[in-house]
C-alpha cells in the first residue's frame, strides 16, 4: 500500500509539474489515426477476415508453443510494480463445506498492476504530454479509476500471423554478438541498438517478408535472465537490448499490428539519446496505434524455428475486455 501511495504521489507531482492536464491541442502533437477520427482500436483494425484466413494457413502440425512466462512471486517486476494474490478458501475450514454434497470453492483476490509479467500495452499506456493515440487529450478522458477512452475493451482480434525475428542468430551470423556474461545462452547485451538492417537480416534468415497485419516477435536472448528469476532480476531490469527509432519506423512502415520482445520495454535501454525516454513506445503506441507485448517468452519458439527452418506461426491470444484499462497480463501462444 505504501508503494501505491508513493507512486500516486509521484504521479501527482509529475502531473502538477508538467501541466499534464493542460489539455493540449493534440492535433499538433500526435498524428491522426488512419482508421478515422473516432478510432480507439488502433492497428488491430488491420486484422481483417482475409488476414485471419491467411494466417490460419500457418497451422500445419497442430503444435502449440507458449510465449508466456508464469506470473508468480519472484519474477522481475519493473520499478515499483507488484503483484500479489490472496486466496479465499473459507469453505475448506472445518464445518465450512456447503450442503449435504459438501460443496467447497476457492477464489482469489488479485492485487496487481496490469503491466507485469508477459503483458500487452494498450493505447492508453503511453502518450506525449497529455496527448495519446489519435489525438486524444486524455486529461478529459480519465477518472479516478479508469480511462473513458482507449481502453482494452476497444481492441479487435489478434488472430493473425506471427513472425519471429531471431536477433541472436542475426548477431551471431554477423559475428557481432557481445553477450552478457550472466546469460546462460547467448543474448544481446543491454544497450544494443537493433537496427532496421538487423530486422531485415533476421527475416532473410528464414526467407520471410512482413505483410500488413503481422505480429512481430523479437528474440534477443535477454529472456534467459527472466528465466533465472529471481537471481538476475536486477540485471534484467537494469537495461536491455532493443529496437532503436530507425527500426521502429521501419516496422511502422510495414503496417504490423504488434511488436513483442523478450524484454521489459521492447526498445533499447539505455536509449539512443540520454534525455529522451521510451521514444519507441511513443512511435508505436501513441503515433501509430501499434501494440506492444513485453516480457514475451521467446526462447522456445526461437528454438522451434531454428529446428524447423520456419519462423512464422498463427497467434492465439485473448485480451480481456477490461473496460478503460491501459494494459493487461496476457497469455500468448504460437500455433503451427
Amino acid at each position: 500500500m505504501r508503494n501505491v501511495l508513493i507512486a500516486g504521489l509521484v504521479c501527482l507531482g509529475v502531473m502538477a509539474g508538467t501541466g499534464a492536464y493542460a489539455q493540449s491541442d493534440c492535433s499538433k502533437i500526435v498524428p491522426a489515426s488512419p482508421f478515422g477520427p473516432d478510432d480507439q482500436t488502433g492497428a488491430t483494425n488491420r486484422v481483417t477476415p482475409a488476414v485471419v484466413k491467411a494466417a490460419a494457413a500457418e497451422i500445419q502440425e497442430g503444435k502449440v508453443i507458449s510465449l508466456t512466462h508464469p506470473l508468480v512471486d519472484g519474477v522481475p517486476l519493473f520499478g515499483t510494480r507488484f503483484t500479489k494474490t490472496v486466496l479465499t478458501a473459507t469453505t475448506l475450514a472445518p464445518g465450512g463445506a456447503l450442503g449435504k454434497n459438501g460443496a467447497t470453492f476457492m477464489e482469489d483476490t488479485w492485487l496487481s498492476q496490469s503491466h507485469v509479467g508477459t503483458h500487452l500495452d494498450g493505447l492508453g499506456h503511453f502518450g506525449r504530454f497529455d496527448c495519446y493515440y489519435n489525438q486524444n487529450a486524455m486529461g478529459k478522458y480519465i477518472n479516478q479509476n479508469y480511462m473513458t477512452r482507449l481502453g482494452l475493451d476497444h481492441l479487435k482480434s489478434f488472430a493473425t500471423r506471427g513472425v519471429l525475428i531471431d536477433l541472436v542468430r542475426v548477431y551471431q551470423a554477423a559475428n557481432k554478438l557481445k553477450t552478457n556474461a550472466a546469460c546462460r545462452k547467448p543474448c544481446l547485451d543491454k544497450g544494443t541498438v537493433i537496427s532496421q538492417a538487423d530486422l531485415e537480416a533476421g527475416l532473410k534468415l528464414y526467407n520471410v517478408t512482413l505483410r500488413e497485419g503481422d505480429i512481430v516477435v523479437l528474440h534477443t536472448g535477454w529472456v534467459d535472465l527472466f528465466n533465472q528469476f529471481p537471481a538476475q532480476n536486477a540485471l534484467y531490469n537494469s537495461g536491455e537490448p532493443g529496437i532503436g527509432m530507425e527500426a521502429a519506423k521501419w516496422l511502422i512502415s510495414q503496417k504490423v499490428v504488434l511488436v513483442a520482445a523478450d524484454t521489459w520495454a521492447v526498445e533499447v535501454i539505455p536509449g539512443e539519446e540520454p534525455d529522451v525516454i521510451f521514444p519507441v513506445h511513443q512511435a508505436l503506441l501513441t503515433d501509430n496505434g501499434i501494440h506492444i507485448i513485453e516480457n514475451a517468452k521467446t526462447d522456445e519458439i526461437a528454438q522451434e524455428a531454428q529446428a524447423s527452418g520456419r519462423a512464422t506461426f498463427f497467434v492465439n491470444m485473448t485480451v480481456p475486455k477490461a473496460v478503460g484499462v491501459t494494459g493487461n497480463f496476457i497469455a500468448i501462444e504460437a500455433i503451427r
Partner: peptide, 15 residues
C-alpha cells in the same frame, strides 16, 4: 531541480 530532474534525467523505472 525537482521541477526538471525527470526531464533532464528521465528515470527508466517510470512507474
Amino acid at each position: 531541480t525537482p521541477a526538471n530532474a525527470f526531464v533532464v534525467y528521465p528515470p527508466i523505472d517510470i512507474n
